[in-house]
Computed example of a mutant assay.
Amino acid sequence: MIVDAGLGVAGLLRRPVAGRVVSVHRKAAYLRLDTELVALVGPDVDPGPVHVRCTALPPCRVGEAVSGDGGRLAAAHWALRGPGAVWWGTTPGPLALAARDEALVREALVAGEVIATAARALGRGTEALVAAVGGRGPGLTPAGDDVLAGVVLVDRAAGGPGVEDRLQALCAGVRTTEVASAFLAWAARGQSVAPAHDWLHAVAAGDRTAASRALVRLHALGADSGRHLAAGMALGLGQLPRVVSQTARAGAGPGLRHRV
């Protein structure tokens, strides 16, 4: 049974669709439905923009055909009832990010060559960052793209809808894996995995307990993907002006948190 689906793929589950399984991993199976990448995951995996969370991960086989009719997603040897709830992440508004807790931001910075390279490049702008780390590293989501996704998510939250087209164009120009491309594209739209959104809200609110919990969840993602994503968000926040005032902190409440 399908529990929920991220904003990037929820629509696919509500109409007729066809595709194939393209890869199978311990905690996820990636499908290509029509032209969109979908990650089937179990209930112990956090929500994300291309995640379809199921009560149990089905026994997918690479290359097998998959089809959906708007209420059921199935292959030859398994079927999932859906379409499930729609999940999307929210981000703090610019004023809330300006009133962030810098000590909590620093806790997300970890040592590493890619992160050091990203920090140097980011001082010259997001375009320089893309050139320096885009597509850099092995794996489903190279480390450079994880860092870039974190920076882009913060840029989208801080800049609002007006920056989305620019960020999407930058991310579309990165030569990388299909999985990384999908997550970069959705970061440009303000969507990432759930603990990334939780961490941004906690840092903006100065909530140390919530920030620590979100960071632990981030660090548990992949071999190093979550660590690099968190570091990217920290680098992105470090580029933003900071305002320390009760007025700004008070204005960062639910009324200014926008859905993206």
Rank of each mutant, 00 (worst) to 15 (best):
R166L: 07
T247N: 13
P92L: 02
G232L: 02
A79P: 10
H258R: 13
D146S: 07
G150A: 01
L235E: 07
L218A: 10
G137Q: 05
A187Q: 00
A56G: 15
D69Q: 05
A157Y: 02
R32E: 07
W186S: 00
A10C: 10
S67H: 11
R227L: 06
S192Q: 00
G236M: 07
V179D: 01
H201V: 05
R15I: 11
S212E: 09
H201I: 04
A211F: 12
P58M: 13
L122N: 04
A180C: 11
G159D: 01
L218Y: 06
G134E: 01
A128L: 10
V130A: 08
G255D: 12
T91C: 05
S245E: 11
E36T: 10
A158R: 05
Q239D: 14
D207Q: 06
A96D: 11
R120F: 02
L40A: 13
P47N: 14
L40W: 11
A220T: 08
V110G: 11
H77M: 10
Q239C: 15
A5W: 00
L167N: 07
V22I: 11
R249T: 14
G112H: 05
E178M: 08
A252E: 04
G144E: 00
A131P: 08
G190A: 01
L170P: 05
T35P: 09
L33P: 05
A29G: 15
G42Y: 14
P138K: 02
T90C: 12
W88L: 03
V52D: 12
V147F: 02
A149K: 02
V216W: 06
L95R: 09
A119Q: 06
V179E: 02
R14N: 11
Q168I: 07
R156I: 00
A96Y: 05
A10M: 07
